[in-house]
């Protein structure tokens, strides 16, 4: 475990039809068991960056790439996307576009089948994966009959069954209703407890602040901030400059300090903010 889970060095990438690179000299790394949140305005290159980690960019989505991306110590460019899927799972934004099979168990078995997992082992892994996402008992149903939140959990289960050590999720909850969002984030929380390494892209900073260890802020293809999430979200001035926002509680504490000349310690989670604010006012 000496190597980093993900290591990106001097990564620059341009799509064929544009002059300016969509990613400019990106450098970051994350350790095993860490969850990284990527935030940034639309068009900042978040999805492109995520897809560099499993090789979709530039192997399937073509363009000019410089620099290196290493996963578990080996270079992504050295293997195919299909090979990478054993290490890196990818969950997309639209739940429904990720479904291709007639029943839920087949949906989960699909990726494993491609990896050549023997049938007996498949059955065990299906049970495990459904259990992890809370869909036990749904084996025989049609994926199309599920709610958005359930479909997205199914997509996660299908990826989990392939047993990757890293999960990447590109706005996994943006199409879901609040109930669906909660369902998916509950699953993510479990994954974190299992020691999974992950990357999540999301616009909902409150969720990112609560779930992620580190946050990377991307703006027009450049890394503007990369630090533990508390550090990023308490730097409100810079976030505002980048047209981004911090969790509401952090925004409030900051506004309060400014309006009344106070110095309450900023926090990014609800509970801690309540404590900080209450104790500062006593």
């Amino acid at each position: 475990m000496a190597s980093k889970a993900i290591e990106v060095n001097n990564l620059t990438f341009s799509y064929p039809d544009t002059d300016e690179p969509v990613l400019k000299d990106i450098n970051f790394s994350i350790n095993h068991g860490e969850i990284l949140g990527i935030i940034g305005p639309t068009g900042a290159g978040k999805s492109t960056l995520a897809m560099c980690v499993n090789g979709l960019v530039p192997q399937v989505i073509n363009g000019e790439m410089e620099g290196t991306v290493k996963v578990n110590g080996s270079e992504v460019s050295g293997s195919s996307v299909a090979k990478m899927s054993e290490d890196v799972g990818f969950v997309f934004q639209e739940p429904e576009n990720q479904l291709s099979q007639m029943t839920i168990e087949e949906e989960i078995a699909f990726g494993m089948g491609n990896l050549g997992v023997p049938r007996d082992e498949m059955l065990g892994r299906i049970t495990d994966a459904l259990d992890q996402v809370g869909l036990t008992g749904f084996e025989k149903r049609s994926p199309l009959a599920l709610s958005g939140g359930q479909q997205q959990r199914l997509a996660i289960a299908a990826v989990l069954a392939m047993r990757p050590s890293i999960m990447i999720m590109d706005e996994p909850t943006s199409m879901l209703d609040p109930k669906g969002k909660n369902e998916v984030y509950d699953v993510l929380k479990n994954l974190k407890d299992y020691g999974m390494t992950g990357i999540i892209i999301d616009h909902e900073v409150e969720r990112i602040a609560a779930y992620c260890d580190k946050v990377l802020v991307l703006h027009e293809g450049e890394v503007q901030m990369f630090a533990p999430s508390d550090e990023v979200f308490t730097n409100i001035g810079q976030l505002h400059e980048l047209t981004l926002n911090a969790p509401q509680v952090t925004e409030f504490l900051d506004s309060y300090n400014q309006a009344f000349g106070k110095d309450v310690k900023l926090s990014t989670t609800l509970e801690e903010s309540v404590d900080n604010f209450e104790s500062a006012c006593k």
Partner: peptide
């Protein structure tokens, strides 16, 4: 893309 990520072309 999804199929690619599920090792379809392996």
């Amino acid at each position: 893309y999804v199929l690619e990520c599920r090792a379809f072309s392996r």
